[in-house]
Amino acid sequence: MFAEERHRLIGGLVTSKGRVTVAELSGRFEITRETVRRDLAQLEQVGVLRRVHGGAVAAGKASTSEESLSARTSRRHAEKERIAAKALGLLPVGEASVVLDAGTTTELLAGLMADQLPRERAAELLVITHAVPIAYRISSAAAFQLEVIGGRVRGLTSAAIGNRTVVQLEALRPDIAFVGANGVDASFGLSTPDPLEAAVKSTIVRCARRVVVLADSTKLDQEALVRFAGLDEVDTLVTDRQPEAGLAAALEAADVEVVLA
């Protein structure tokens, strides 16, 4: 196979999978790892990908890159809907306090709660959120008790951030929290690109009695800039695909239940 054809195929793999490893490419194309590294270096120079430790990620996968809420809403919508539907079944029985973190999948969960829960069931739940779209969605179903956590709203995610938000969350001990993440990695744990968002997420994880992470499979084996929790701080991961061997082993070692949607 000519190098040009191999480069085209590598570019396609990075685009479709989000991340490739040197070992994976070496075995797939039956070339040495040194040849793979040269290929990746050439592809990085023309902007096709970005090299990281052990492999490469898509060019737009910088640790600080983050799409707007509106851009993320339509991406992998079907998978996120399935994840939200599974999460709905994890709500505690009876009266309970529920934190909904900011994010497109947690917003879908809020919509299912508003649309599908009977009025009597909804009345048993106190929903706590710092996300404006989620607060609006829950408030449209009058039966819920709703507590909105305030602070400065970040336009990119429509979520309150900052010290005031963190202090309000620190004073709570909710029964369950549904949390989003930009990355779920075996060694780095859960991460997100923005430090202020990370501080809020970290506080949610620490204060909740049970933590459920909602993350579609594009977030698995990924790292964003700021780590906000270790895998051992999570009780359940709801995703749409079985994690790869390394992450699966780390989740099992951390006693994280994996629920497939």
Rank of each mutant, 00 (worst) to 15 (best):
M1I: 12
E5I: 13
R6E: 09
G11C: 00
S16G: 04
E30F: 02
E30A: 12
T32C: 05
V36F: 06
R37K: 13
Q45H: 07
Q45T: 12
A56M: 04
E67V: 00
E67S: 13
E67D: 12
A71I: 08
R76Y: 13
A78G: 05
R82A: 14
K86Y: 00
L88E: 03
G89Q: 11
L90K: 15
G94N: 05
D101E: 05
D101H: 02
G111N: 12
L112M: 12
L117T: 14
E120A: 15
E120S: 10
R121H: 09
I128T: 10
T129G: 05
H130Y: 14
H130A: 14
I134K: 12
L146G: 10
R152V: 15
A159L: 05
V166T: 06
V166F: 00
Q168G: 02
L169K: 10
E170I: 05
F178Q: 10
G180K: 08
G180W: 08
S187G: 01
G189Y: 01
L190A: 09
T192A: 12
P195A: 11
P195D: 01
A198Q: 08
V200P: 05
I204G: 06
R206Q: 14
R209E: 12
R210G: 06
V211Q: 01
L214Q: 14
D216Q: 03
T218Q: 07
Q222H: 07
R227I: 09
F228Y: 14
G230M: 03
V234F: 08
L237S: 05
T239Y: 01
T239S: 13
D240I: 07
Q242Y: 03
L247M: 00
A250S: 15
D255Y: 04
D255Q: 09
V256N: 09
V259W: 02
L260W: 01
A261D: 06
A261W: 05
A261N: 05
